[in-house]
Design a protein around this nucleic acid. Structure first.
Lengths: 182, 182
DNA sequence: GTCTATATTGTGATAGAC
DNA sequence: GTCTATCACAATATAGAC
């Protein structure tokens, strides 16, 4: 069984993603993690500490992703677009959770997101050797996340799309990308 | 002087945009609008009614924008990308305000945003006669809004960019678009 | 139409037992 | 490490005077 600390962070992320920032109260997090509020407070003395925890997760997961992106056989551009679709991976979840925290006015969340995004743009620009193409592809990836961000929350369906339809959408985006970088 | 009702909606929008959904309390809105909380409640009996007001503004402004987009001399694609940059227009402000409401768990905000975005995508697809290009350009516009959404809030600088630098960025995006639609 | 109370609930956090 | 109280405060909303 995962440590109480990890279960609490998981619960916080899940509530942020599926119920929104406002619903992710200490009471709700404790209940979902299966601990009392006092138990939660022992691990995270304040709500900012809880936010700090998910920001740390995002930073770590994004660093791993950046390494994979640089080394991707299909190239960073396709890798980036492919992974910009929300699939519920730990990285996807961390991004959306931190994005929600940002809405709640958390300042660390803004800085964390900005650092992660700057890293991705830098990798694209370096690989493509074309700042305009990199910027355009970065925007398309942002757009994909934007869509997910506004489809997920507030008790919506779990966003579990058909894989076949979905791969077809991806191929279509790849063809557009080829026009941009070609 | 604007009616009290309009001043209240303006104040609510402004707080949502610059301070975030959590800071846009009835107290804060009343103070910024220059009325008492009781006065506010007379015009908007609940906070949902307040949200309903800004959703209505967005729907109305988006309909006007859609008409201009269809008739734009430069074409809907360039018009859409140009107007996707946050410039603090009434439409820009309404979009960001409703996006913030969405984070707070307001269901009407989701439906309103979705309807508006579907309309824009339909106009692009119809004008370009290329669903893939329309989707890609729509994503780029979403990406531009996503950037604004995460640069604006929580007491950030007013986001008043240099017009010359900015037009240059736009020209570079236009060149990428030409590759996609050409 | 706008105001001043006030009621009620929810939220983050503390204190201290076990 | 985890729990059960409990506090202090902020938020929405109501009641009724002017």
């Amino acid at each position: 069984m995962a440590s109480a600390r990890d279960r609490i962070l998981d619960a916080f992320e899940e509530l942020l993603i599926t119920e929104g920032e406002r619903a992710a109260t200490l009471d709700a997090v404790a209940a979902r993690a299966g601990v009392s509020k006092g138990g939660l407070i022992y691990h995270f003395p304040s709500k900012d500490q809880l936010a700090h925890g998910v920001c740390g997760r995002l930073t770590s997961l994004a660093a791993d992703d950046a390494a994979r992106m640089r080394a991707a056989a299909e190239g960073p551009a396709r890798f980036y677009i492919r992974s910009s679709r929300y699939r519920g991976t730990p990285l996807d979840r961390a991004i959306v959770a931190v994005a929600r925290l940002h809405q709640g006015g958390n300042t660390e969340a803004v800085a964390t997101l900005r650092a992660v995004e700057a890293q991705w743009l830098a990798i694209l620009a370096e690989a493509l050797r074309d700042d305009d193409a990199a910027q355009a592809i970065k925007l398309m990836g942002d757009g994909l996340y934007y869509e997910a961000l506004f489809r997920l929350p507030t008790g919506s369906p779990p966003l579990e799309p058909d894989a076949a339809t979905d791969d077809h959408e991806l191929e279509r985006l790849f063809r557009v990308i080829d026009k941009i970088v070609g």
